[in-house]
Design a protein around this nucleic acid. Sequence first.
DNA 1: GTCTATAAGATGATAGAC
DNA 2: GTCTATCATCTTATAGAC
Lengths: 211, 211
Amino acid sequence: MPAANTPDGGSKATKGGETPTRREQLLTIAARLFADKGFRNTTVRDIADEAGILSGSLYHHFDSKESMVDEILSTFQEELFGQYDEILASGDDARTKLERAVRVSFEAIDRYPSEVAIFQNDADYLGTFERFGYLADRNMQSRQVWITLIEEGVRTGVLRADLDVTLTYRFIRDTIWVAVRWYRPGRGLSHTDIADQYVRILLDGIAVSGG
Amino acid sequence: MPAANTPDGGSKATKGGETPTRREQLLTIAARLFADKGFRNTTVRDIADEAGILSGSLYHHFDSKESMVDEILSTFQEELFGQYDEILASGDDARTKLERAVRVSFEAIDRYPSEVAIFQNDADYLGTFERFGYLADRNMQSRQVWITLIEEGVRTGVLRADLDVTLTYRFIRDTIWVAVRWYRPGRGLSHTDIADQYVRILLDGIAVSGG
DNA sequence: GTCTATAAGATGATAGAC
DNA sequence: GTCTATCATCTTATAGAC
């Protein structure tokens, strides 16, 4: 079941430099609020207030609050997983693939902070509705990406053979995505700087070698 | 301002093997629900239902929903920070102190999974009320513990001198506490096993040395 | 210590005017 | 595309009976 809700005929999210439609403006506002306060703790009145309209008017654009978050999340996920697929299909060695996957993930936090935050905070709750079944699918898909990369690394001798693959996957996943809690695009370290340092710590640790 | 709400004269939480009071039973139920669904998404009716009473009856035991979460969080934090203080005051070398702090934290996740989850998910929101000002204080205190340990490690030559101390602190903090999302006491790896593997990855990385 | 009953406000959503 | 007006439901919390 596709997530889109586009009576105008199928416009996606804001890509390129085109002027955003009213629908897109409203989704941007909703995404920021959902990210800041959580989906259930954001009221349709909150969204309408920020948009300068009344809550009832929102229902001219969207069926329901759920339709809004559905459109926000599904658009983002398509893009991210397209990039993971590209990395998996590439001919790079295991270490390079792992590094690329880390960098692409931090880039996603930079470009889609609200979407990432919503997924991190509300996916479990939303996943209880059939409509959002694709969230659990994406979770499994992401897990498969990382497990594949880690196992390839161990097999080709670039990663330690004694690693607990599942635990390593969790550590990598958690450390990357939880950064959405403190990373602010345009302030402090850039997402590429953070990815550099993270890759270094992940691969070589924080201790002095041979210590 | 103390957080306790103890008309009975000051009983703490359930320690040792004593039979829990009705008050403690209700707090245990509330803590699990707050952890699972979030503070704002747990209704007093949810808590009362699980306890087998009506929502109004809860107000015989507690002033408000906020008093409940206050008592849950403050009791837990006293214990955890007592352990950090002990480590800081010890004569151990920097590497040992860092390892001990990691282990104590994973042990806290094991013993107080609900409390940790509530703090992770709802501290930002609760912190907006004066009553919960101590949460921000504890956050700063925790930051100071880790920063101190990392800086001591760098100074004494056991940690790499090129580390970004703040970023390293965030990575350590995030990776540890986010484990509360998937760790389940008594299932899978024990908290000591997880701490072992985590310390190894943190200090030495996942790559083969000299790779 | 729990129940009955209820207040006062917030919430997602709808129907129809402009 | 937005507003007026409103509904049915859920929310935290209270007062007093048992």
